[in-house]
Design a protein around this nucleic acid. Sequence first.
DNA 1: TTTACTGCAAAGGGTTTGCATGAGG
DNA 2: CCTCATGCAAACCCTTTGCAGTAAA
Lengths: 149, 149
Amino acid sequence: MLTQEQLVERLRHWEVRVTPQRLAIAEAVLNSTDHPTVQQIHERVRDHFPSMTLATIYSTLGVLQRSGLIQELPFQKMSRYESNMDPHVNLVCMNCEEVIDTDTGQDMVVRLKNRISRQSNFQVAWQRVDFYGWCPRCTAEKREHQQTG
Amino acid sequence: MLTQEQLVERLRHWEVRVTPQRLAIAEAVLNSTDHPTVQQIHERVRDHFPSMTLATIYSTLGVLQRSGLIQELPFQKMSRYESNMDPHVNLVCMNCEEVIDTDTGQDMVVRLKNRISRQSNFQVAWQRVDFYGWCPRCTAEKREHQQTG
DNA sequence: TTTACTGCAAAGGGTTTGCATGAGG
DNA sequence: CCTCATGCAAACCCTTTGCAGTAAA
């Protein structure tokens, strides 16, 4: 979670212009933990910028990614955007399609990254660790359907 | 690496028809370690089936995924297909776009999966562990350019 | 013989691009 | 004042869908 001042500083450092639209988009992603899609970001900034189009959002997300503030996570149908740049595990529900960060195993991801960097002759920039399955709520619903149906 | 007989058995088990096209597509993916794209699979089967279209390949890849034989890996521009269903680490070169499996850290991925399954209240089906960066060859080329330029 | 797969064509939809206008530094 | 961002529209291209002919079981 960055303050607006820190955000402005980071953007200026990359010689990009700081516009109200960019700040709104950046905050919509950085102050979220739910890995929003472009559509969801659009919904979140639409109240303040009714005329903003998806092209502007795509452009800004590109700037933020090149600045190292966010990371694009391609999924089958569309991309989501990750604001937690620390090594960690994402839990992806194959039923409700929610994507949440978890603290569980964070230390192991860090150690795994160190090991890959040291032993694999591969220069690591970042990592994506996704576990796919069913979240607690959808697991419960699945059980109910199995019992009744 | 599955034999053709094992492959036929696996497909019959899911009550799908075993056609020459499906066998060719399945072998093109399963007997590879380079995570081919749909286009690459097309190139690999085109000699034997000149009239085969991408629609058939997409359809067959869907069948193979639902049969648990392969896994789709969405990337920014397009999907690649993974035939190594064991927990492991993929190394993705951001320069040449090669995607290779590595044995390094395989044990840690297994332990990470066990930990997530036990401690996170999340029912895990499979996982995707990607490390993005630069492969040895592209790292060397980058160094050369920095020295000369 | 029945069912479902193949191949072709067209549609779908997330993402990118080009350009005129407008705003940041 | 110059450069670059925004907004609009169109293009792009991977992927999906519909359908007629055909092959698997």
